[in-house]
């Protein structure tokens, strides 16, 4: 029985991405790590996403607080708003929303950059210069996204909670110290650690997918657009799949 063409293509792509990921681990184990380029990528990925992540986080906290107030008020549980918002943001919404933002910003950026380098023969030029382009371009970017996405998520979580604090103060009056106390009292390690841990996988997936799409792009300039576009789509999908797996594993380990 022959599988439909679409299924064949999807399976072939999963195979290609797996091979690409395996090559990443192989190249990591070989000497001459491109330290300078790695730090440059960390700066580019982190610094350039900071503003977007901050605004997203702030609005997220603000909107969640404003939207949840009427429901909480119906149950006379307005005092619980900081705790409820903190758990929602730290455990789930913060990591996932920021990872999706990063998939859009960083994933597409990497896909377009490497795709453009591929079609303008810059990757070939690098190879001719005696440089391993996979190590220089892919390994450094994947490590940079793996380490920078968690940092961006932590940063966004703080900004988000500050947004929530401001939203609480729109109707009521509460001090920052009291708000912080409520947040800290409700949060446990089982809320923070699994959520933090999964962000490394989000970052890794965004880096691998962005690099894979760019590095293997073809069809000239049209391919660059396709690489950027499909990097966002596939990386976003991967974020949800990883999140689903993370929730299942956390549940199995009894950390819910």
């Amino acid at each position: 029985m022959k599988l439909p063409l679409g299924t064949q293509r999807t399976l072939a792509e999963i195979g290609d991405i797996s091979r690409f990921t395996w090559r990443f681990f192989q190249e990591c184990g070989r000497p001459k790590f491109e330290v300078q380029e790695f730090f440059r990528q960390c700066f580019m990925i982190g610094n350039r996403s900071l503003g977007l992540v901050a605004i997203t986080g702030f609005i997220l906290g603000l909107v969640m607080t404003i939207q949840s107030r009427p429901t909480m008020a119906q149950f006379g549980a307005e005092d619980w708003i900081p705790s409820m918002v903190a758990i929602s943001i730290i455990r789930e919404i913060g990591p996932v929303v920021i990872a999706l933002i990063c998939a859009g910003k960083i994933g597409s950026g990497i896909g377009a950059e490497l795709g453009s380098m591929k079609v303008t023969e810059q990757i070939d030029a690098m190879e001719v210069s005696g440089t391993n382009p996979f190590k220089y371009l892919v390994v450094t970017r994947v490590w940079a996204t793996t380490l920078m996405v968690p940092i961006l998520v932590i940063f966004a979580d703080f900004i988000s909670l500050y947004g929530s604090y401001l939203a609480v103060n729109m109707r009521d009056v509460t001090s920052l110290a009291l708000f912080t106390q409520q947040v800290v009292e409700i949060l446990e390690f089982s809320d923070v650690l699994p959520a933090f841990f999964k962000t490394f996988f989000f970052g890794f997936a965004i880096g691998v997918i962005g690099c894979y799409k760019g590095y293997t792009s073809s069809k000239g300039t049209e391919g660059v657009g396709l690489a950027a576009n499909s990097a966002v789509v596939v990386a976003s999908l991967m974020v949800f799949i990883i999140d689903l797996l993370a929730v299942q594993i956390t549940d199995l380990l009894g950390l819910t």
């Binding site: 950059e113 453009s116 380098m117 303008t120 023969e121 810059q122 070939d124 030029a125 690098m126 001719v128 210069s129 005696g130 440089t131």
Partner: peptide, 26 residues
Amino acid sequence: GFLFQSNALYDSMTVRENLEFPLRRH
């Protein structure tokens, strides 16, 4: 040496960095 048809200059680097690249490698 290989001169590419599309020149293949690294877009994200200055002219100096482009020229330094092979020197830093070799």
